[in-house]
């Protein structure tokens, strides 16, 4: 995995977590991915960190010694914090996810979460359109320059039509998660007003063929009735937790 990771843009991530063991572990993995990490063990430290630096993402634990992460995030969002926030928490009433998202978190994970999952979610957050968005999207050797609409796989150019490039951009921005059919329909309609629902399947299969021709394997999955999913990380064959 580390080959592709070198191509990732360096991101600065703030980890707000009071368990030192956990925060160091997370920071190690993220550093290995080439990201720069700062650790804050309290909300007060986090405040200081946010005052002096700009972060591309914040990993926020909820139960901190000097206050509640949800309330803090709400206040911070009102003050103009616009970095994506991934909430990571050990506590959990059923509605915590909703409460967290309402407070302004972009994603929510319950501990114990696998390191793979944390970094996958972070990568997904960093790919979202945002203020310091990298114009070049990158997923597993697949690259798309969102301004020039040029796509490459392992640095070999891919010939894509405009629709295919638009479709690929949607999948790459949502890589690792399901991009719902409905969303694709609306988004492609915005790009191009003459698209029929069947056309999406046609675009998908053409794109899949092109990727296969370049040795990308079967990385675009059709989920019947739901939408499409572009694989984010290489699959471990048939593994089940």
């Amino acid at each position: 995995m580390s080959d592709d990771l070198q191509q990732y843009q360096v991101m600065r991530i703030l980890i707000v977590e009071d368990s030192e063991r956990l925060s160091c572990l997370i920071a190690d993995v993220l550093k290995r991915d080439g990201h720069a990490c700062d650790i804050a063990a309290t909300l007060e430290h986090a405040e200081h960190a946010l005052d002096v630096a700009d972060y591309d993402a914040v990993l926020l634990d909820l139960g901190l010694p000097d206050g509640d992460g949800v309330t803090w995030l709400k206040a911070r969002r009102r003050l103009g914090l616009d970095s994506p926030v991934l909430m990571l928490t050990a506590r959990g009433a059923l509605d915590d996810r909703i409460i967290g998202l309402d407070a302004g978190a972009d994603d929510y994970l319950v501990k114990p979460a696998a390191m793979d999952e944390i970094s996958a979610r972070l990568r997904a957050l960093l790919r979202r359109p945002g203020r310091r968005m990298n114009p070049v999207l990158q997923v597993n050797g697949l690259q798309l320059d969102t301004t020039s609409r040029q796509a490459t796989f392992n640095n070999e150019p891919l010939e894509l039509t405009r629709r295919e490039a638009n479709f690929l951009e949607l999948l790459m921005r949502g890589a690792g998660s399901v991009v719902l059919r409905q969303k694709i329909e609306t988004a492609l309609y915005d790009f191009d007003d003459e698209i029929s629902p069947n056309a999406i399947d046609a675009i998908a299969s053409r794109l899949r063929r092109r990727l296969k021709a370049h040795g990308a394997g079967d990385c675009i999955h059709t989920l019947r009735g739901l939408g499409y999913l572009l694989e984010d990380a290489p699959r471990k064959q048939g593994t089940l937790p």
């Binding site: 690792g176 399901v178 999955h221 989920l223 019947r224 739901l226 999913l229 984010d232 699959r235 048939g238």
Partner: peptide, 14 residues
Amino acid sequence: APLAVAASRKVAFE
């Protein structure tokens, strides 16, 4: 669904 895909199973919705 991503979990199912990672485990080489498909998911469909009716």
